Amino acid sequence: MTIIVIVLLRVLISVHGQVDSTSLIINNLDSLRFAKIENKNFRIMPYLAPSYTPETEFLLSCGGLITFKTQQLNSLLNRSSIPFSLGYSSNGAVTINIQNVIYLADDRLRTLGEFIYRDMPDNYWGVGYENGLNVPKSNQTTGYKRMYWRFYERFMFRTYKDLFIGAVIDMNGTVASELNDYMKQDEYVQANGTEISNTGFGIAVEYDTRDFVQNAYEGVFVSATMLLFQQYLGGNTSYRVAEFDYRQYFKVQRERRTLAWMIKARHSFGDEIPWSDMAMLGGPFNMRGYTLGRFRDKNAWSLTAEYRHMFKRKTINKRGDYNSRLGYVTWLGAGTVSGQIKEFNGLLPNAGVGLRFELQPRMNVRFDYGIAKGENGVYITFSEAF
């Protein structure tokens, strides 16, 4: 596999009223050099990193992790985070990714979402489990070019203790070009065309006892979402989507050792479900190692169980504890797609290992190697997969 070389630059800016002082500390940790300028609240850590994924091949991305508190004097409020990246790959892909988890009003309001832009060579195996297994990947059978963007945001209001109810917006678009002959003859492509715009609004209900959304050590998260996509909302498609997400986290033996698992399901309903927005497996957050979109259909299920282990130091660190910045994870998973909810195809296996490097308390950069059926992938990004 690819030998990954990563250079991380850590920069924190210290401001109190006006700028009183700026300190620069250069540390060498496992051959990684960090520059650090500290700020009490607002922190930004830039990075430059190469990686390899099935979708983009060799990718060079630059970006950073922004963290802050919306109420600096509230010691009980978790830090909000906005990881972002801009990438260019060996196959000509251009990618932009911005995520956000923001806590407001004493955590009575949360906004969580992402903005994605991709202009890249892509692959389309067709719809269905059998196509994902049997259609060979090549420029003549699966290759095409896709420009894709998505804006997704959840506005969640705490109603009672750990119960949240909120509104969801999902806007996305696809422009496909340079189609191969196989794709031109696909019934779903012929039905939906190559320029697709989806606009959906919906509601979500969540029960969340996680101690920290971005990297939970313990707690439960249960979410049910219903989205309505209609042409009168601004898109050119009409269908409905129901999503279910269950996650649970347990401390194992001691602090910073966690057993976590996630069950996800997505179901689409209607006669105009576009090929570009069907339920998919793969990518950096679900069934890591599978090319995103290789397996797609109206319905998808997946299960992932992951063990997370952060190391302890033999000597005390500068923060006054024995916590190391380094750790590892390992996971097992399975999933499938189908055209009918009652239909069940064969399970797709998934496994992997990863390294973790803590940039800020509970804020990691992750290096994951996912193993899939017939392919694999390496991912470098901020935040845990779930």
Rank of each mutant, 00 (worst) to 15 (best):
S75A: 11
V101D: 06
V135W: 08
T67I: 13
D20K: 15
K69E: 02
N41Q: 09
K312W: 12
T194W: 01
I96K: 00
A49M: 05
E243S: 13
I13H: 04
G377H: 06
F221E: 09
G200A: 02
N78R: 08
T53D: 11
M45D: 13
L48K: 07
F115D: 03
A279M: 10
F269N: 11
Y239C: 04
W331D: 10
E375M: 01
N131D: 06
K312E: 15
G320E: 02
L326M: 06
A265M: 14
L303H: 12
E153L: 06
I98W: 02
F367R: 04
F157H: 15
T111F: 06
V11T: 04
L292W: 11
G126Q: 04
A260T: 12
G113N: 05
R294L: 02
F42T: 11
G64C: 00
M280V: 08
F157V: 15
G63N: 09
G354N: 03
Y322Q: 06
N345M: 00
Q72I: 09
V11H: 00
Y52S: 10
I4R: 12
A204S: 15
F386K: 04
N180H: 07
L29P: 01
L227S: 07
S89G: 12
T258I: 15
M363L: 03
P54I: 01
K184G: 05
V7G: 14
L179S: 08
F164D: 08
C62P: 01
Y160T: 13
K318F: 11
P349V: 00
G320F: 00
A216I: 10
I13W: 03
Q18F: 13
M45Q: 11
N192S: 14
N376S: 14
I96F: 01
A305H: 05
F151G: 08
S14T: 06
E255N: 04
Q140N: 14
G289T: 03
Q185K: 08
M310V: 10
F367N: 07
F164S: 08
K69T: 12
Y117F: 01
T142E: 02
W125D: 03
F34N: 00
N74Q: 09
V5G: 13
L233W: 04
S276G: 12
R108E: 11
R325D: 14
R256M: 02
D30L: 12
M183Y: 04
F155T: 14
L281M: 13
T56K: 00
E178R: 12
F151I: 03
T209Q: 02
S223W: 05
Y249G: 06
N376T: 13
